[in-house]
Design a protein around this nucleic acid. Structure first.
Lengths: 104, 104
DNA sequence: TCATCAGTTGCGCAAGTACGCAAGCACCGA
DNA sequence: TCGGTGCTTGCGTACTTGCGCAACTGATGA
């Protein structure tokens, strides 16, 4: 593992923070099934449209999702399949932690 | 990608937030080279000992690091090698995003 | 041109977080 | 038992974040 500069770590941390909210993770799970408009996402995730727009802005500025405009509708999709790899890895870590913790 | 429950996502998000601070990422990079005491970490990362102790508490409650006590010294180490895998993946995503963004 | 629909942005509030500093606690050597 | 070292905890402050609501922008269709 190479040492990073402070700037790089700042950038990596932004991705971490983007992954640090349950609603945003729910967005990623939804987008894993295909692209969605903002209103579709807000319905499926269960929050208001302005709130969804803000979450999407966080995800986009972290580089995790991309947007495409078609007529008056904006469709979001995962920017990179590795985003899902990272999320899955986090799920695995959380899972194995639960095993160690609860003795299951 | 399977859908998660709200509780699971809360747990995954805790890991994301733990990865969402540059100093904590620096701790992970340092621990990648072997276990360290709190005072060693605070010196290498560049912050005060109480602050480091708090960051370590965040990492530990997310299940990313483990602690071991030897005499009066507490040594921390990575709880799981996959933590580094996840971090590396995040670095890769950030890196490829920079390529896309800056056109390099 | 005008009303409407899809998204974004601004604002205010409540909650959470990072940090420094001081105090507390646990362990160890003398 | 006492002083010192190593770490954790409590407290106050400044900053950030998630959210709802209202206002705004830009594209669409009559």
């Amino acid at each position: 593992m190479a040492l990073s500069t402070e700037n790089e770590r700042q950038r990596f941390a932004a991705i971490g923070r983007a992954l640090g909210d349950p609603k945003r993770l729910c967005v990623l799970e939804t987008l894993a099934r295909g692209e969605r408009s903002v209103s579709e996402l807000s319905r499926e995730v269960g929050c208001q449209v302005p709130n969804m727009s803000q979450h999407l802005a966080v995800l986009r500025s972290a580089g995790l999702v991309d947007a495409r405009r078609d007529r008056s509708t904006v469709y979001y999709r995962l920017a990179d399949p590795r985003v899902l790899d990272a999320y899955r890895l986090i799920q695995t870590i959380a899972g194995s932690d639960r095993e160690r913790t609860s003795g299951t």
